[in-house]
């Protein structure tokens, strides 16, 4: 599995959880990708930052609450989590509202980072 060059993968998450299946699908692909020892970055921008909101309680909507799984990413050696600063502000949230440690970045910085990637996957 470690044969070949390590590529830089970026997962761009832009959708709120539960309203659509994108967030959960992305998370599952990320977990699978972790098995291949690649350089993985996760970006949360726009409504995607809601995926990391603390205190999700999904009993009422009878959906699986997959937010605790973001806390498992560290154990999968996925440690590069980036959050769009402007998206936090526009939603009245701060870093303290998020359930994992992240690096908050401006859109401009995220754009630069995106440019450096070999593969960008969009959700």
């Amino acid at each position: 599995m470690s044969e070949g060059a390590i590529k830089k993968f970026m997962f761009v998450n832009r959708k709120a959880p539960y309203g659509t299946i994108y967030a959960l699908e992305s998370l599952e692909v990320v977990l699978i990708t972790a098995a291949f020892d690649q350089d993985v970055s996760l970006v949360f921008m726009d409504d995607g930052i809601f995926q990391l909101k603390k205190g999700q309680q999904t009993k009422g909507i009878e959906n699986k609450n997959f937010s605790p799984t973001y806390r498992a990413l560290d154990g999968y050696d996925i440690e590069k989590l980036y959050v769009e600063a402007e998206a936090l502000t526009a939603r009245g949230l701060t870093e303290d509202d998020l359930l994992v440690d992240v690096t908050v970045m401006s859109r401009a910085e995220l754009g630069k980072l995106m440019d450096e990637m070999d593969v960008v996957l969009s959700f």
Binding site: A35, K64, T69, R71
Partner: peptide
């Protein structure tokens, strides 16, 4: 229970 997934 903690992470809602079975680990790899």
């Amino acid at each position: 229970n903690e992470f809602q997934i079975a680990p790899a």
